[in-house]
């Protein structure tokens, strides 16, 4: 490993921003198209710690939009992501869970995170996660994605806020409505989520 320090990586980021995000822990529920991209961009921002939960392994079709590589096919996504992120930012701490999220474990897995990013695939699991999070941690932000497929219509992407629930996406496009999962739009929505993480942390008291 090259002899580097945090200043080498993050020296160009405003110290006021660095200070605000330095000691924070962000939860990421799901490490697919949204979660893998959120994790990488937050690692590049200098977030202190990530808690990532996903029980899937990397498969070939994931490579059309998820932050994985051919030689990682067959690995658990959280292990592959750990390996990739450490190649970008060796200072970040990562807690991995190869667990399917359910109404019994959400509270424990994410109990120490400051903000939770919802990066799941199925709407019913999104609902379970949001209901559980909001029930147990009503004062902590959760950033969810709803409507991330297809291409074009970027002007329809928006952020809606309901109390501590932030919703990113077009709130329309779903895979079963003939909208394909495509890297550009998922990349944009995942980075809307990461950007909101930074914005919420920087604006905090």
């Amino acid at each position: 490993m090259m002899n580097i320090n945090k200043e080498d990586l993050f020296g160009k980021i405003d110290p006021k921003i660095r200070e605000k995000i330095a000691n924070k822990t962000i939860g990421i529920a799901g490490a697919g198209g949204l979660g893998s991209n959120v994790a990488v961009s937050l690692a590049r921002c200098g977030i202190d710690k990530l808690v990532i939960a996903d029980f899937d392994k990397v498969e070939y079709p994931n490579l059309n939009r998820q932050y994985y590589f051919l030689d990682q096919v067959g690995m658990y996504k959280v292990d592959a992501l750990y390996e990739t992120i450490k190649r970008i930012n060796p200072f970040i701490k990562i807690e991995k869970y190869k667990t399917e999220l359910n109404s019994l474990n959400v509270k424990d897995i994410f109990s120490k995170v400051d903000i939770l990013v919802e990066a799941l695939d199925k709407a019913e699991v999104k609902q379970m996660l949001i209901e559980n999070w909001t029930e147990h941690f009503p004062e902590k932000p959760i950033i969810i994605a709803s409507g991330v497929y297809g291409f074009g219509d970027f002007e329809k992407l928006r952020i809606k806020v309901v109390d501590k629930i932030y919703i990113c996406g077009d709130q329309v496009t779903e895979i079963k409505n003939d909208f394909s999962p495509l890297s550009p739009k998922i990349g944009i929505v995942s980075n809307m989520q990461s950007d909101l993480v930074v914005k919420i942390l920087v604006n905090e008291e």
């Binding site: 198209g33 979660g35 199925k122 949001i130 209901e131 709803s146 497929y149 996406g169 496009t173 909208f179």
Partner: peptide, 24 residues
């Protein structure tokens, strides 16, 4: 969701509904 049939909404309430769409 298990309380949708039993939760009674008071007058002047503010109801917020978030639509969840699969995909991620």
């Amino acid at each position: 969701k298990e309380d949708y049939d039993t939760f009674i909404i008071p007058k002047n309430a503010e109801v917020k509904v978030i639509h969840l769409i699969s995909g991620g």
